[in-house]
């Protein structure tokens, strides 16, 4: 099965070649796109314009997207869900997570007990490769990679996120138009 129509050296083929039919066919396609850009609204199946006007129009990020990290909190008590188990730090191939626990005294069933809670959480987004292994390791669905994808900062230090940033979300400047 020949895939490319094999040119036969007939007189018609030679004439076609002299009058540059092969080039004109290609030019018809580009002209079609030029007209399509002005008239066609369908950019996926048709010939419309595919551009996303990014800062003006926010892109639709998939729900599973791995973006900026976040430490989720209990929606009722606003306590952190993190139990300082360190599994995320162990799962991280890049060693970019530091979980710093502290011991607190709690009264459980009338008896004082020591309990390990989260003190500080350091997440170095400059080294993170967003593989989401930490998210999968987290037993309490606390650490999550969100849909926020604008992670640029002005300094290297700005890439290192502490617990507050991870819980509240970073203040990002949203540029209009």
């Amino acid at each position: 099965m020949p895939l490319v129509p094999v040119p036969k050296s007939t007189f018609v083929q030679k004439l076609k070649r002299f009058f540059m039919v092969d080039l004109l066919k290609g030019m018809a396609v580009t002209l079609g796109f030029n007209i399509g850009a002005l008239t066609d609204k369908d950019s996926v199946a048709g010939k419309g314009i595919y551009t996303e006007q990014y800062p003006k129009v926010r892109p639709d990020v998939a729900p599973r997207f791995h973006g900026a990290p976040r430490l989720n909190m209990d929606p009722e008590t606003h306590d952190t869900l993190c139990i300082a188990c360190n599994l995320c730090a162990l799962a991280c191939p890049e060693d970019c997570i530091d979980v710093i626990p502290m011991d607190v005294e709690v009264i459980v069933a009338g008896k004082p007990r020591r309990k390990k809670v989260l003190d500080e959480f350091i997440f170095d987004t400059s080294r993170c490769m967003f593989c989401a292994l930490c998210q999968e390791a987290c037993p309490t669905y606390c650490l999550e990679l969100t849909q926020d994808f604008e992670l640029a900062t002005y300094s290297r230090a700005g890439f290192v996120w502490n617990r507050e940033m991870l819980e509240q979300g970073r203040e990002t400047v949203k540029y209009e138009s």
């Binding site: 490319v4 129509p5 092969d22 080039l23 066919k25 290609g26 018809a28 396609v29 199946a45």
Partner: peptide, 18 residues
């Protein structure tokens, strides 16, 4: 959608003398 697109690329390139 894809075959139609592929045909477009081939129209521009495959037989193009250049």
């Amino acid at each position: 959608n894809f075959p139609k697109r592929l045909d477009e690329y081939e129209t521009v390139l495959s037989e193009n003398r250049i």
